[in-house]
């Protein structure tokens, strides 16, 4: 492929720049070693802190650059690549700035926020580097609208077939379609929990009550219909039931792909729900940190 991942962007030029920054910061830090107590208050500490603050502001500017669509200031990919590497370097720069002096104060609060942002960023890098492949493999050339179209078409065909079947089957199949759960709340999307149901009722002869029963992964409805096959009242029903089982299995397969797609996409996006709000909070905490530093100078 001619495409370049953001980690390898331009031979990972920002990796080298980030490493250079890190070496520089360590060197700067070491100049206070032995003589002065390393802290954020030495001139080296001020320089490290200024670098860190500028880095944070610049890293946050990715959000602006990303939306400055007509901007010709580098590509967003370049920015993101630099964002990843320089963001990682920030972890070291800020730690050196703090010189390991932590406490229950706004300064450490900002530091912890920054660490959380960077760590969530690491999660994001991993997610961006690996999940798209899994999504792509799961799609097998299609995309989500196509999967839903296929599911929708299967629903229609199943409903048409169900109409021709006896009432219990019809109710079971129709209800299994209507009560198919896809996605849902956060946990359901992330862990693919399936709360599908269907209405199970007896045949006309047994006459048992209709009950709402679980239908995880559509297996129960398949079993239910398959169980009817050898007990079919009329020979004419058999081909129809065969067909039904076949379509239900196809539907199961499509549903699995959809659920996996939802799950993967949810994981792909989840980190941003941590990264972005924390980044914003970090910016504010950074301002407070600087403000209070000079408030009680």
């Amino acid at each position: 492929m001619i495409h370049e991942s953001l980690l390898k962007y331009r031979n990972a030029r920002f990796l080298w720049q980030a490493l250079a920054l890190m070496v520089l910061s360590i060197g700067l830090y070491l100049t206070q070693g032995g003589v002065r107590v390393p802290s954020g208050g030495t001139w080296q500490g001020y320089i490290l802190g200024t670098i860190g603050a500028l880095l944070i502001v610049w890293l946050a500017l990715l959000g602006v650059r990303k939306r400055a669509y007509a901007s010709s200031l580098g590509t967003v990919q370049g920015w993101t690549s630099a964002h990843v590497y320089l963001g990682s370097a920030l972890l070291l720069v800020a730690t050196l700035h703090s010189a390991g002096q932590f406490g229950w104060n706004v300064h450490t609060f900002a530091y912890v926020l920054m660490c959380l942002v960077i760590l969530s960023g690491f999660v994001g890098v991993y997610a961006y580097a690996s999940i798209p492949q899994w999504i792509s493999e799961n799609h097998a050339g299609g995309n989500r609208p196509e999967l839903f179209s296929e599911l929708f078409a299967l629903n229609r065909q199943l409903q048409l077939l169900a109409v021709k079947s006896e009432a219990a089957i019809q109710l079971a199949v129709t209800s299994s379609i209507e009560r198919t759960a896809i996605g849902g709340d956060v946990a359901a999307q992330l862990f693919g929990r399936d709360r599908s149901r269907f209405i199970r009722s007896g045949t006309a002869s047994s006459g048992s009550e209709a009950v709402l029963s679980g239908n995880e992964d559509q297996q129960q409805i398949i079993d239910f219909v398959a169980a009817r096959l050898p007990r079919a009242d009329k020979a004419a029903e058999v081909p129809n039931l065969h067909e039904l089982v076949l379509f239900l299995c196809r539907r199961q397969s499509v549903l699995r792909r959809i659920r996996r797609d939802i799950r993967l996409r949810a994981w792909l996006q989840l980190w941003l729900y941590v990264h972005v709000p924390l980044s914003v909070a970090l910016l504010v905490a950074l301002v407070v940190h600087i403000l209070t530093t000079f408030m009680y100078w």
Binding site: I2, H3, E4, S5, L6, Y9, K66, Y69, A70, S71, S72, T75, V76, Q77, W79, T80, Y128, P132
Partner: peptide, 20 residues
């Protein structure tokens, strides 16, 4: 006329989009 070339490519954060 947009400096830097197609916005779609330049806006891609991961380098997935290219014009060839």
């Amino acid at each position: 006329g947009l400096a830097g070339g197609p916005a779609c490519v330049r806006a891609c954060p991961t380098g997935a989009a290219l014009r060839l």
